[in-house]
Amino acid sequence: MNVRIAADVASEAERRCQAVRRGDLGPYGELVRVNAQELVTTMFPRFTQHRGAERLRQDIDAFYKCFGATRAEFIHLATEFVRFMQPRLPPGIGRPLIEYEWMLFDVEVDKTPVPRPDGQEARRPTHVYLNPTVRWLATPFDLHADDQHAAQALLNHDAPYAYAIFRTFDHRVMTQRLSNHDIAELSSFTDGERLISPKESAHWFAHALAHELITSHHE
């Protein structure tokens, strides 16, 4: 599906788009930036709050001037913005925050269906699976702490905080902080599944099933 592109058409199209990237071409330079800032602010509210409006405006400006976004759909501007920002953010809480908030979006739109949870009869399951949408995240601070406490945790070199982020059957996106016990139990899964022997305590499994971190159905 090749089409021949005349050099003068290519240079003219390039000239107009480069003007937009610089912030020109009538109102278009500003329009794209306003639209991008609105989307980023909506999708990454905590990161936006941490970053501040002026620095975010500069980030968006640099995004247009320096970055080549490959995903066509406007909703994926957010993904492209994260790709742009990741190597540019200094050590601190900004990068974990934007990665976490992007992960919330990624889990929300994951195409894998989440099985319907069982009722009471599943309290003694024999075969369980990880929630198919689950992502793991380790951060150097508590995600629910404010910026000041998060920065202090970084300074103190606190032990990392581990989280599971997943979507429930009824489409709620959950962020579950994982305890050492959770991590130990989860590490016993192989390829996302695990058999439970009748001799094992089912307590942890029942709890994880109730929260839909794991499921007793495979789809």
């Binding site: 290519a10 199209a13 107009r16 788009c17 937009v20 794209v32 247009y64 970055f67 066509a72 406007f74």
Partner: peptide, 17 residues
């Protein structure tokens, strides 16, 4: 319209010459 140059997408409907 166009939304892209050789660098990538701009996420706007830009008029064509």
């Amino acid at each position: 319209s166009m939304s892209r140059d050789s660098c990538g997408y701009l996420y706007e409907l830009i008029p064509v010459r």
